[in-house]
Nucleic acid binder design. Structure first.
Lengths: 221, 221
DNA sequence: TAGATTGTTAATCGATTAACAATC
DNA sequence: TAGATTGTTAATCGATTAACAATC
């Protein structure tokens, strides 16, 4: 229990290692070295070694890392080896897309239902999932022991709906709105901040156009 | 031209300041201090001062910052004061949601059309935008002088479609796939990495459940 | 004026990178 | 064995925070 807690940055890199080694495994590879990973993803090999060590993966000198072990340990470290149920709050454009997006399956996240307060939407079924009355969020959360909720409502009501989620028993909010949420201690919020991402893209495109052709190319993919 | 280039981190914070001061302005405020911003968003007041300075905003001792000036300078610094045309490649669930999502208007990004290679989708119109044949991407990009493309195709074809985008003249790819894209120098890639975001959320929820109740609450919203 | 607040330089902190010893 | 690669400790680098001078 004296292990140093992993840094947010390292945590953000783990899924990329996981995805890459799964691809390598699909092509028949069984072991991989840090140098190889670093060539594919960028970043210093030592950094990758530290990240893997933090997730509990150990390699063998001269051999490298067993790909199966990376997959097993990293998946388990992230809690992605068994399925986690979650709910979606907000069945607008963005919300419904998140409902239909298959990509989340890979991460072991299963949306059991969507919630909205629009009577026109309540009762409908989209991508095989029911849209339920927001009022019933607490019932379902308690009954199915849900911990995670994705928030995808209009910005104007984000704060209020987040409060409702917390009162309903949600412990982790995956926030797809641009609003900074104020939640009580014990509740975690992780925001997908599209505006921040676009700011980085706009700025880099602008510097590029201004003739920063000599600068090193950096791909933060 | 000797200005220190702004850090990625600072860049990511700017949209949050922008959003908050716009909200304050809507409530009739005309000036704001760093301390106030820091109380609302978290983070050290000095950091906010440096971020604003990097975007060209100057305040006045004892007074604070003119909200109108923050809005004007930060918007212009990010290039969000005039509309930029962009295209969307990939008209699946996620792609269509991004097409319909109104939130991007605020950032001055206007999607002029979507592209796909599925004959069943080509020619259809969604959210008022046409879905065109992927083959015609180059034509439109050239004709309308488009620089930015959003990539929202299945992971399996992401690399190939990215190559097509680059060949078509796209200079900045906003990447919504989990794939690390390899692009030539001069092309910028910014990825919205949902897996990374979920990794952070999963991990924080897990540490919370393990009884890390004494730890400081951190909201990365 | 006195106090609040900005602007800027210096100190701290943490993440990344480099160096090198251990080892299959 | 010799060389490649991991694991780990030390050095570097950059971002954040603290201190303090300038000023409305």
């Amino acid at each position: 229990m004296t292990e140093t807690p992993i840094s947010i940055q390292a945590l953000r890199r783990l899924p990329q290692y996981l995805r890459l080694v799964k691809a390598l495994r699909a092509r028949g590879r069984e072991v991989v070295s840090c140098r190889r990973l670093s060539e594919e993803l960028g970043g210093d090999p030592t950094l990758i070694r530290k990240d893997l060590a933090a997730a509990g993966v150990t390699g063998r000198p001269k051999i490298g890392y067993q790909i199966d072990e990376i997959v097993a340990r990293v998946s388990s470290f992230l809690g992605w080896n068994n399925t986690t149920d979650a709910v979606l709050v907000g069945a607008g454009n963005l919300g419904l897309a998140l409902l239909g997006y298959e990509g989340f399956r890979e991460y072991g996240l299963n949306i059991v239902a969507a919630f909205d307060n629009d009577p026109a939407k309540i009762g409908r079924q989209v991508h095989g999932k029911f849209i339920l009355d927001q009022e019933k969020l607490g019932d379902l959360v308690e009954r199915m022991h849900i911990h995670i909720g994705r928030l995808a409502v209009p910005a104007a009501v984000a704060a209020d709906v987040a409060t409702l989620m917390v009162l309903s028993g949600i412990q982790a909010i995956w926030n797809f709105t641009p609003v900074k949420l104020d939640v009580p201690q014990g509740v975690v919020v992780e925001s997908v901040n599209l505006a921040s991402s676009l700011a980085v893209l706009s700025n880099r495109l602008a510097s590029m156009d201004l003739g920063e052709k000599g600068g090193p190319y950096v791909n933060h993919g």
